[in-house]
């Protein structure tokens, strides 16, 4: 039988292979190759690393992280599916899909090692295209600083004493080139003596204007299990996020176009154009991918309640946010 797998010469490029279960991951100067028992799947290495970065940083996230319309992971919260074509109608209908389940820690360890080895010096998979180098070429150092950033997670609210700090020049967060016109003033807090630590406010838009990463929500305020997760976006969300629960977006500035596809089949469903002030719900049975022509501000609003997990497990999670 003809061997259809690509020839990858690690001695020449200096990269490592990463086998896990029945899968084997390889890269060369331009592409990532995903070998599985039924064949091989190929992705451009920059797109692959940007998606891998999110999957690692988000801990496999809520639901499905589709690296594209064929390959991805599905989180079962403790274990995770690694799949080829399992959420693609043609692969499924032609019995070409393949999936293997792993303990989350095991797969995460492999993904982290792969990300560290395959991300070369000067390439930041979290950054906008104009703010980073390229992923192309042979092994050339690494960029551990960029890939090990921890997203800011407030316990109550950004800036409250003891909680996550407000971004500033002093803390290494400069205003992004697209947000130079965003007002940096802070709220005027006039607390009576003794109440200085009890009333609090901060400039959320200024905070967002200083975001280093794109498509990486942080948490700025927590109302029981309600998590306000704003983020700044530019170019393309590197994954198609497949929801396993309802998720809400509030567009703060500029514009994002969301391509919506069916979560299981990947068939197109809708296109949303969101402008400043727009609010929209992502249903629990879709996948979505955003396109932001200019760096924009978006509030992603999540419900982190354990009750949601129970509902996902027993199949009672609401498909839509509201029925009316």
């Amino acid at each position: 039988m003809t061997d259809l797998t690509a020839a990858v010469n690690n001695e020449q490029t200096g990269y490592q292979d990463f086998p896990v279960g029945s899968f084997n991951f390889r890269r060369d100067e331009y592409f990532a190759y995903i070998d599985y028992p039924d064949g091989e799947y190929v992705m451009p290495i920059d797109a692959y690393l940007k998606a891998l970065m999110r999957d690692v940083a988000w801990g496999f996230f809520y639901g499905t992280v589709n690296f594209d319309s064929v390959f991805g992971t599905m989180n079962h919260y403790g274990n995770v599916d690694l799949f080829i074509g399992s959420h693609n109608e043609e692969y499924i209908n032609n019995d070409k899909d393949f999936m293997e389940n792993f303990p989350s820690e095991e797969l995460m360890e492999v993904f982290q090692a792969m990300l560290a080895d395959w991300t070369i010096e000067g390439f930041d998979p979290f950054a906008a295209p104009q703010e980073t180098g390229t992923a192309w070429g042979p092994k050339n150092g690494n960029n551990d600083e960029a890939i090990s950033r921890k997203r800011q997670v407030a316990q109550r609210m950004i800036g409250i004493p003891g909680d996550t700090e407000i971004r500033s020049d002093e803390t290494g967060y400069t205003v992004n080139r697209h947000f130079q016109d965003v007002d940096q003033s802070q709220p005027v807090v006039e607390a009576e003596p003794g109440f200085e630590d009890q009333i609090h406010g901060f400039n959320l838009w200024a905070h967002l204007s200083r975001s280093v990463e794109t498509w990486n929500p942080s948490i700025v305020s927590v109302c029981k299990q309600s998590l306000l997760c704003p983020t700044s976006e530019e170019f393309i969300l590197p994954v198609e996020h497949g929801n396993d629960r309802v998720e809400w977006f509030v567009q703060v500035s500029d514009e994002i176009i969301w391509e919506i596809k069916d979560g299981k089949s990947s068939k197109p469903r809708a296109s949303l154009v969101m402008r400043a002030g727009d609010v929209a719900c992502m249903p629990a049975d879709i996948r979505h991918q955003g396109f932001s022509p200019k760096r924009s501000m978006l509030v992603v609003w999540e419900n982190g309640s354990p009750e949601i997990l129970e509902k996902i497990k027993n199949g009672t999670v609401p498909r839509v946010g509201v029925e009316f």
Binding site: Q180, D254, D262, A270, R275, A276, C281, V322
Partner: peptide, 29 residues
């Protein structure tokens, strides 16, 4: 670059181009 915000007296609402399904699923406001 100019960042586009909006206000109660000056907003430019987006919308939904439907291909399949129900526009109400997106609860767009």
């Amino acid at each position: 670059y100019k960042t586009t915000f909006a206000s109660i007296d000056n907003f430019n609402k987006g919308g939904v181009q439907m291909i399949a399904g129900n526009i109400k699923d997106y609860v767009f406001s």
